[in-house]
Amino acid sequence: MTSGPLAANGAERPILQVRGLVKRFGALEVLKGIDFAVAPQELVFVIGPSGSGKSTLLRCCNRLEEPDEGSIMVDGVELTDPRCDINAMRRRIGMVFQSFNLYPHLSALRNVTLALRKVLRKSRREADEIGRAALARVGLSDKVAAYPAELSGGQQQRVAIARALSLEPKIMLFDEPTSALDPELVGSVLATMRDMRESGLTMVVVSHEMRFARDAADRVVFMDGGRIVEEGTPEKIFTAPENPRARAFVAEIAR
């Protein structure tokens, strides 16, 4: 990826720009006006108590949830515009889920190649080539033929990452990618994410992996009650947050 002359003078357009986002489930207002931007190659961490709306925020960013109000721009395209081809946009927005969500009836390679074949209309040969490369990138060259049930949680999550990566997304959204994993499997997934970060991918990560946040995140956003109440460098948020709720929360997850 070329970061171009724009990156140098700091005037680059954000990859993701959320403005005034409101989301309700019935009478329950879950997101109460979110403003949020992610610059190219930035890694933003999102933390906050359970129910604060972190997952909903991510899911609105590729319209898995329909926003009720506000605007969501991805790479300069307004997702809430009725004329927006949402399927075309979604493949540029990779998403990784807490529960992996691999297709259990397909091998690792077929999990990766399905969208390549059906969305990007690649030939089987070309899709297989890209799929194998994506699996190699996450360290799973030897598992192309394995079915999800034959893989460990960490391996499944890496296949899921490969599935998203293979579509060459502009931005990747991670919703608690390691919280369903046994502690000894977390490292392999974080290593993969670190590798993606180093290759310049733009990432939004909902996670409570503080160590990872401290050495990989550019910025940490703290959400509470459907709002972003504080944001800053990992250093600031994890050591000296101003908001009392953030302070209590950080103390809690640091234990």
Partner: peptide, 23 residues
């Protein structure tokens, strides 16, 4: 079939019908 299967399929750009048929 769990909702996550739909989510995963749709998040890669598959349309509703494609997610239904293939996933």
């Amino acid at each position: 079939v769990r909702r996550g299967q739909w989510d995963a399929a749709r998040s890669t750009g598959l349309g509703f019908g494609q997610a239904l048929i293939h996933v």
